[in-house]
């Protein structure tokens, strides 16, 4: 999972695709800028998936 916190305070978390889509939308709507997938992934912070409790899914 990834996280991006914009300088305007807006923040999003999700999968790589979700974060890219949200940041592109936010950049256009809030700041009038176009951003590429590579630019977004370069600034996104890696956050691990929540870990499964022991025995989950057995």
């Amino acid at each position: 999972m990834k996280e991006v916190t914009c300088i305007c305070g807006w923040t999003c978390r999700g999968t790589e695709d979700e974060v890219v889509a949200q940041v592109i939308d936010h950049g256009r709507a809030a700041h009038g800028i176009e951003s590429t997938r590579d630019e977004i992934l370069a600034i996104a912070v890696e956050i691990p998936m929540p870990s499964q409790p022991a025995g989950a899914g057995d």
């Binding site: 996280e3 914009c6 300088i7 940041v23 800028i33 600034i43």
Partner: peptide, 8 residues
């Protein structure tokens, strides 16, 4: 204009 670096 380019995307600004994140604040965190």
């Amino acid at each position: 204009a380019q995307l600004e670096p994140p604040v965190g």
